[in-house]
Design a protein around this nucleic acid. Structure first.
Length: 590
RNA sequence: GGGGGCGUGGUGUAGUGGCUUAACAUGCGGCCCUGUCAAGGCCGAGACCGCGGGUUCGAAUCCCGUCGCUCCCGCCA
């Protein structure tokens, strides 16, 4: 080893010891006769003092930030008054008696000893330097602890971790697959898994009643702050369980994880709330509500059913709804602030936002002239609106109203700073619809995925009224993010085949794409179900980050490129020819 | 595929029609300095303001296009 101790591990108990350290120059303070260097390694930092005649002064003067040094010295108590209370090693220092430069460093493209926000382009190009920074170190250490906790917990609960292949099979449903061309089979492709869904179900057929995996998943869709093309799930599947068995286990896992890994986080609900999908949409306008604050949506179609206000009147005649949220204490909002709200709502798909301000000198806003005082009274009673509140109405189809007000709720959350830091509001959303109508392709899509078990009581409605069929699917949500999605699965060939048919797959496609799993169901498949919490998103929340790139060592940028390695990149003609691939792109595109 | 924001020395910012020979901090190079911890002091190098076109007597600044990054919508079973 190049070192006897970690820089950050030295304490007063080491005083008098001769130690050898190795690490990076975090900061240097050159006073001419004496030079201080803060040496950093993965354990932390310590101040090294160079004032001995035994070390060449010209050598020390050359040293710059991020050079890699090996330093031998004596651990000393710092002179009285020169302690640094901001450093765990602040009461001691290492008086150098020898120093070797292991590797110098060029001038850095951006500072490492500083948490200044740097352009993402540059950070990602020099990701290995970005990761040297304290914040990224802490994030990746946190990620490690989270994953270790999951493994330990599940191991203690008799789960078996099993790896499943990355090279698997493309499926017709779901996200766009990443395809991998096959050299040995011209014109054929593997697909990288969107999730190990089928494999974990087949492991249940195989008798592994409690399976888990820290599983990498791939989806070739556009990126978002909380979406990367490859991401990590804690994949869990269990046999002979009902929905509540899984919810109970996962709730216990996550509750203990947060308490133990990030004790400063406060769990707002224990036990967690359980909302139905319909309830979540009605009350919060989304199936992944942020429950850290109230500001619920109110359906006021009834209160305003006799309104003379043309927009409301027309909406109600068309069978649409009028819903509102209250912006507390915003009755005095200026035209400009209200315009910001309206333009945000329009981006979300609203035709507009109708306002009513309950200001001390009477009601104001768009509705002022069109609302009776008894309507105002009823409105206040029903919504809890108070003097000083601004009421924001949207009238439209229910789905649009929910989407817009749900987004507006989050907009106001940030604008009005409504959230307590460190709050974690976990909840379950259950009873999702089985199918969603795909207007573009005029067919039914699986709302969760096609292996989800419809609710038993809804099975008879599969043919007559697919829209009303609910499924045994559930989401875990937290602070406005979907952190996990799961379901009880179908384990019966006939039901599974029926679902594929409703989704518009031909018998041939069903046989070709899913024959293996259908056949497996005929060999004694146990009832089973599972869930897959997203590791990146969870760590992101625990690390107080707003982008999952911050908790992934080498992420892609928003255009799905790796700026450090410059991927994706061209393949050679030889590679392509071995893969039996001819390109259909112009030279400029290459 | 669509919309918003951003793009100025290595980095972070200021400058939004003439005061600019583009400013400040930090980093970089040099000199001084024996107790600092974001050390300090002095000196110096470093950006034709993402790129292309236009308006104007005059453009970092206004307009158009384009590229890149980012956030959002679509998409994400």
């Amino acid at each position: 080893m190049y070192k006897t101790h970690g820089c950050g591990d030295l304490r007063e108990e080491h005083i008098g010891e001769k130690v050898t350290l190795a690490g990076w120059v975090h900061r240097r303070r050159d006073h001419g006769g004496v030079t201080f260097i803060d040496l950093r390694d993965s354990s932390g930092r310590v101040q090294v003092v160079f004032n001995s005649k035994s070390i060449s002064q010209t050598l020390i003067e050359k040293i710059r930030l991020e050079w890699v040094l090996q330093v031998t010295g004596i651990v000393c108590l710092r002179p009285a008054g020169s302690e640094n209370p901001n450093l765990p090693t602040g009461t001691i220092e290492v008086s150098a008696i020898g120093c070797e430069i292991l590797n110098p460093a060029k001038a850095l493209p951006f500072p490492i000893n500083d948490e200044e926000m740097i352009d993402e382009n540059i950070r990602l190009t020099y990701r290995y330097l970005d990761l040297r920074r304290e914040r990224m170190h802490q994030n990746l250490i946190l990620r490690h602890r989270v994953i270790k906790f999951m493994r330990d917990y599940l191991d203690a609960h008799n789960f078996i971790e099993i790896e499943t292949p990355m090279l698997f099979k493309t499926t017709p449903e779901g996200a766009r697959d990443y395809l991998v061309p096959s050299r040995l089979y011209p014109g054929k492709f593997y697909a990288l898994p969107q999730s190990p869904q089928q494999l974990k179900q087949l492991l249940q057929v195989a008798g592994f009643e409690r399976y888990f995996q820290i599983a990498r998943c791939f989806r070739d869709e556009d990126l978002r702050g909380d979406r990367q093309p490859e991401f990590t799930q804690l994949d869990i599947e269990m046999s002979f369980v009902t929905r509540d068995d899984i919810l109970t286990l996962v709730e216990d896992l996550f509750t203990n994880l947060v308490v133990s890994v990030t004790p400063k986080k406060k769990l707002l609900f224990s036990p967690w709330q359980i909302l139905t999908y319909t309830e979540a949409l009605d009350r919060f306008g989304t199936d992944k509500p942020d429950l850290r604050f109230g500001m619920e949506l109110h359906d006021v179609s009834d209160v305003l059913k006799n309104s003379e206000f043309q927009i409301f009147k027309n909406a109600l005649i068309a069978g649409e709804v009028i819903k509102c949220i209250l912006a507390p204490g915003c009755a005095d909002y200026s035209r400009k602030k209200i315009d910001e709200i309206i333009s945000f709502a329009k981006e979300q798909g609203a035709k507009g936002v109708i306002t009513l301000a309950l200001s001390p000198d009477g009601v104001k806003g768009t509705l002022q002239k069109f609302i009776t005082s008894s309507e105002v009274d009823t409105l206040c009673t029903q919504t809890g609106a108070q003097q000083g509140d601004l009421i924001l109405f949207v009238a439209d189809r229910k789905s649009i109203v929910n989407k817009v007000l749900g987004a507006l709720r989050l907009f106001l959350r940030d604008r009005l700073k409504l959230i307590t830091s460190d709050a974690m509001a976990f909840a379950w959303v259950v009873d999702f619809p089985m199918f969603e109508w795909n207007e573009e392709e005029k067919k039914w899509d699986a709302a969760h995925h096609p292996f989800t078990m419809p609710k038993k009581e809804d099975l008879p409605k599969l043919d007559s009224d697919p829209a009303s069929v609910l499924s045994d699917a559930y989401d875990m949500v937290c602070n406005g993010y979907e952190l996990a999605s799961g379901s009880i699965r179908i384990h019966d060939r006939a039901v599974q085949t029926r679902i594929f048919q409703i989704l518009g797959l031909s018998d041939e496609e069903i046989r070709g794409k899913f024959g293996h799993i259908l056949e497996a169901f005929e060999f004694g498949a146990p009832p089973h179900g599972g869930i897959a919490p997203g590791v990146d998103r969870l760590v992101m929340l625990l690390a107080d980050e707003v982008n999952i790139r911050e908790v992934i060592a080498f992420p892609k940028n928003q255009s799905a490129r790796d700026l450090m390695a410059d991927a994706p990149s061209s393949a050679t003609d030889k590679q392509l020819s071995e893969l039996h691939i001819r390109l259909d792109v112009s030279d400029e595109e290459l």
